[in-house]
Simulated scan of single mutants.
Amino acid sequence: MYRDYFVRDLRMIDDVEDIINRNPFRKRVKLYKIRKNPLEELQEAEFKLKYRFSRSTAMFIIDMVKNDLSGDSRGGLIPPHLKVLTALRTWVSGEIQDDAGDLNGMSQATVSRVCKQVALALVAKRAEWIHMPHSEIEQDNVIAGFFSICGFRQVIGAIDCTHIRILKVGGNVGQYYINRKGYSSINVQVVSNANLEIMDIVARWCGSTHDSRIFNESPLKQRFEQSEFKGRLLGDSGFACTSYLFTPISQPNTEKEEMYNIAHSKTHNTVERCIKVWKQRFKSLLQGFKTKLDNTKVYIVALAILHNIAIQRQEQLDDVEEHDEVPVPVPPVTLNNMTGSSARAAFINDNF
């Protein structure tokens, strides 16, 4: 059904060759690259190897955003399916845009524009794909998912932060993007459920920002303080302990506290595995982005949406590496909320 686009491109090549034959002294002739159709030409195994999604899921994504991608780009009309596949190839492989463009017959500049178009089209669907559980039934299902891991009660999300490498930022603000490992990054806050889906993401803070500050200034904290959710979050020592966000005991003194720490670690590990799978699926998250800062922030959210689509459609990722990066150390928060510490102590006493 996409064949007309490629026939048109082939005719364009033939016309140019005719011009060259008639006028061999012509100085400038622009040759259009032949745009192949991976949906039709690649076998399923090869397609998934290149795009990290099955053909059916790729078609699902194309159908979801195609109405927002019906515009012209310089270099000829590019069909929506080719725009999506080009963006996917760029993000999942971590290749430079020119390499991804060669596969689909586009210049580097065109690939850059296409990636931004696809990312914006995906982010327009954010509320549909990235959200905390709304109804009581949805919250109960998320809580049950966490409880099934090792019996930790009333957990509605696991929270953590991860650094995405970016190009060095110029100007006076550049120093604030340098994290504790010495490279420029965006510190991204992620909340996941037990199925490794991303339920909340904040991708706008510079790399030197402490994890606790990102949460303290997020809309999600306000929603918990307004008792919008019946469960609580689990976070590491980089967050302050509150009545709605439990952290580990820094120095457990009793058997109950040790049992709590073990259960906390196993349950909180879901968000760590979520981030690992997310980055392994999209190598550009591992290797970092070389795009404009504003575009990079959009790409991160778009890739979170694609991650959730992959999880919900059971797209298996068989080659997740055990050690993919060295985490940026986060200083522990020592000033915990007294009410939070009391709530945690009561919870430990009642459940362990």
Rank of each mutant, 00 (worst) to 15 (best):
Val202Arg: 10
Gly288Val: 05
Gly105Ser: 13
Asn308Asp: 08
Asp68Val: 06
Ser73Val: 06
Ser73Phe: 12
Leu10Gln: 07
Thr291Pro: 02
Phe47Ser: 02
Arg8Ser: 13
Asn308Leu: 01
Ile96Ala: 00
Arg89Tyr: 08
Ser107Met: 09
Val202Trp: 10
Arg213Leu: 02
Leu233Ala: 01
Thr254Glu: 01
Gly171Ile: 02
Asp294Gln: 11
Arg180Thr: 07
Asn216Arg: 14
Asn295Asp: 15
Asp318Pro: 03
Phe215Gly: 02
Gln314Val: 14
Asn351Gly: 07
Thr209Pro: 03
Ser135Tyr: 07
Tyr183Thr: 08
Tyr244Asn: 09
Ala109Pro: 04
Asp99Pro: 00
Ser341Glu: 15
Leu69Ile: 05
Gln312Glu: 08
Ala194His: 09
Lys116Trp: 05
Ser192Arg: 03
Glu95Tyr: 14
Tyr244Asp: 10
Glu136Trp: 03
Asp9Pro: 00
Asp18His: 09
Gln97Asp: 07
Arg8Pro: 00
Ser192Glu: 10
Asn67Ile: 08
Leu42Phe: 15
Phe53Arg: 11
Lys279Val: 08
Val7Arg: 12
Phe25Gln: 12
Asn172Glu: 15
Ser54Leu: 09
Lys66Ile: 04
Val29Leu: 15
Asn351Met: 03
Asn193Trp: 01
Ile62Lys: 05
Val169Asn: 01
Phe53His: 05
Tyr32Leu: 10
Glu257Ala: 08
Lys279Ser: 02
Leu69Thr: 07
Val188Pro: 07
Phe347Asp: 10
Leu233Phe: 07
Asn349Ile: 08
Glu17Tyr: 13
Asp236Met: 02
Cys274Leu: 05
Glu95Asp: 15
Tyr177Cys: 02
Asn141Tyr: 05
Ile262Lys: 15
Val65Ile: 10
Arg89Gln: 10
Leu31Val: 10
Arg180Val: 01
Thr162Phe: 06
Val29Trp: 12
Gln117Leu: 14
Thr334Gln: 09
Ser208Leu: 06
Arg28Leu: 12
Ile305Leu: 03
Gly76Leu: 06
Ala121Gly: 05
Asp294Glu: 14
Arg35Thr: 01
Ile201Asp: 04
Lys30Asn: 08
Leu335Asp: 15
Leu196Arg: 11
Pro79Asn: 11
Ser56Met: 10
Arg26Val: 14
Ile166Leu: 03
Ile149Gly: 01
